[in-house]
Amino acid sequence: MRNRGIELGVGVFMLVGMLSLAMLAISVSGLTLAKQEGSYKIYARFENAGGLTARSKVTMSGVAIGKVTNISIDRQKLMALVEMEINADVDYLTSDSSASILTAGLLGEKYVGITTGAADDEILKEGDFIEDTQSSLVLEELIGKFLFNQASE
């Protein structure tokens, strides 16, 4: 009957391990099973993508709809080229959407916020560009401007 105890112990061990994995998956990393049907890539050029990194969120109205996968320099226009992966079920981004780099809180992480426009007929597809962009808010520049305005008043 010693064997029975051992088997029970190993069983409990395995169960606890699985529960831990489930907790790590669901409540820690927020993994949900009903998604990942695929994604498509869109691009946007920014004057300044400072603070944005790969894996940053892409949101619309505060809801995550994808993530940044790559950031590089567009050699012709000398601007930051941001590649984003948008979940496939988000199929309503119009071609005149605008993208801006936002900050969560004053010092929080940077993310991309997308706002759709009015052109209902043209929907963004794989490889399309968002033309209307707004760059990162750089705190130093902001403070500089503020001081400049104060001084000129």
């Binding site: 061990f13 606890v16 391990g17 529960l19 831990s20 994995l21 790590l24």
Partner: peptide, 15 residues
């Protein structure tokens, strides 16, 4: 087999 399981338990309990 055991070490990955123990690692998951460690993470979960730690969090």
């Amino acid at each position: 087999i055991c070490l990955p399981i123990l690692t998951m338990i460690f993470s979960a309990v730690g969090i």
